[in-house]
C-alpha cells in the first residue's frame, strides 16, 4: 500500500509543488467513540468477562472435604496437566476430525462454488437458485439436521444396505457410531461455510484472465492451476477457517452420530465435565487449550497462505 501511495504522490510532487494538497483533516469530534461504544460494551460483557471467568475457573482448586462441584479460586496450574493427560486423545481426535472434515468440505465445496460462480456465470437466475440450495439447510435447525443424518446412516437405512450390497461395508458393519459418521456430519453441517467464500472469490475472478491464460498457451488445467486457483485462494483460506474452527469445537455431531469410546471429541468432554461431572476446572482448562491451539494453528496457516489481510 505504501508503494501505491508513493506512486500517487509522484505526479503531485513533480508538478513543482504548485498545488500542495492539504492532508485530510482529522475529525475533531468524538463521534467515532460513540459509534464504537455499543460494540465495545457487547464484547466486554459477552466476550471479555466470560473469557476472564473461564481463565479463572481453569485454575480453581477443589475445596477440601467439599461436595461434588465445589471449587475455590486458586492458581492450580496442574489442572492443565491433569486435563491434557486425561483427555489428550479427544483433543487430538478433535483436530484430526476437524482437519478431515475441512479437507472433505474443500474437495466437495470447491467444485460446487466453481460451478455456481464460473459455469453459471451470466445466468443470475440459476446462480441464485443454486446459492439458495447451498444455504437452504440453514432454514432448519442444526440439531434436527444432524438427527436426520442419524436416520440416513442408520443400520436399516438404504445407505448402509447399499454399501453392504456393493461389499463396500462388511456384513453387519455399520456407519453410525463410527468416525466416518462423525466426519461426514461435520462435513455436511459446515459445507456452506466453505462454498460461500470460495464462491465469492471465484465470482470476482475476471473471466478475461482465464482467456488470457488460454491465449498464452496454458491448457485449461494449467490455467486453472496458475490463474484460477491462486486468485481464489483468499476464498479457500476463509472457507477452511470457517469450517475448521467451529468443527474442532463441535460436539453435536460427535454426540449424535458417534459413540462414547472412539469418536468423542473435546467439545463432548467439555460438555460432560461442565454439566454432568461438574468438574469445572478441567472443563475450563480444556476450553482454554482448545482456544489457544486453534489460535496458533490458524495464525500459522494464515501466515503460510500469505493472506494476512484476512485477519
Amino acid at each position: 500500500m505504501s508503494l501505491l501511495a508513493g506512486l500517487g504522490a509522484g505526479p503531485a510532487g513533480a508538478a513543482g509543488g504548485a498545488a500542495v494538497v492539504p492532508a485530510p483533516r482529522r475529525p475533531t469530534s468524538r463521534a467515532w467513540l460513540w459509534l464504537l461504544l455499543p460494540g465495545l460494551v457487547y464484547l466486554l460483557l459477552l466476550f471479555v468477562v466470560p473469557v476472564v471467568a473461564l481463565l479463572a475457573t481453569s485454575l480453581y482448586a477443589p475445596v477440601p472435604g467439599g461436595e461434588l462441584g465445589q471449587y475455590a479460586p486458586a492458581l492450580r496450574v496442574a489442572n492443565y496437566a491433569d486435563a491434557l493427560a486425561a483427555f489428550w486423545p479427544q483433543l487430538t481426535r478433535s483436530f484430526g476430525f476437524a482437519l478431515l472434515a475441512t479437507l472433505a468440505a474443500l474437495l466437495i465445496g470447491y467444485p460446487m462454488a466453481y460451478v455456481i460462480a464460473v459455469r453459471a456465470r451470466g445466468r443470475p437466475l440459476l446462480q441464485g437458485l443454486l446459492l439458495v440450495l447451498v444455504v437452504a439447510p440453514f432454514f432448519t435447525s442444526f440439531i434436527l439436521r444432524t438427527i436426520a443424518w442419524r436416520q440416513i446412516l442408520a443400520d436399516d437405512a438404504f445407505v448402509v444396505q447399499a454399501l453392504q450390497l456393493l461389499h463396500l461395508l462388511p456384513e453387519g458393519g455399520r456407519l453410525t457410531a463410527t468416525p466416518v459418521a462423525v466426519v461426514s456430519g461435520l462435513t455436511y453441517n459446515f459445507l456452506p461455510f466453505m462454498v460461500l467464500p470460495i464462491y465469492a472469490s471465484l465470482e470476482r475472478l475476471d473471466p478475461r484472465l482465464v482467456e488470457a491464460g488460454a491465449d498464452l498457451y496454458a491448457s485449461p488445467a494449467t490455467t486453472f492451476r496458475t490463474v484460477t486457483l491462486p486468485l481464489s485462494l483468499p476464498g479457500v483460506v476463509a472457507g477452511t477457517l470457517l469450517v475448521f474452527i467451529p468443527a474442532s469445537g463441535d460436539y453435536v455431531n460427535s454426540s449424535l452420530l458417534g459413540n462414547s469410546t472412539n469418536t468423542s471429541m473435546v467439545g463432548q468432554v467439555i460438555d460432560a465435565r461442565f454439566f454432568r461431572v461438574l468438574d469445572y476446572p478441567t472443563a475450563a482448562s480444556l476450553s482454554v487449550v482448545l482456544m489457544l491451539v486453534i489460535l496458533v494453528l490458524v495464525g500459522a496457516y494464515v501466515r503460510r497462505a500469505g493472506t494476512e489481510d484476512l485477519l
Binding site: D206, R208, L209, E211, A212, Y217, S219, T223, P230, L231
Partner: peptide, 20 residues
C-alpha cells in the same frame, strides 16, 4: 484448434494482466 495451441497472442482491451 484450442486457443492455447494457436501461435497467436492477444493484447486485450482490458490488458487482462494477472494481478497475483
Amino acid at each position: 484448434t484450442r486457443p492455447h495451441r494457436r501461435p497467436v497472442n492477444t493484447v486485450f482491451q482490458s490488458y487482462a494482466l494477472f494481478p497475483h
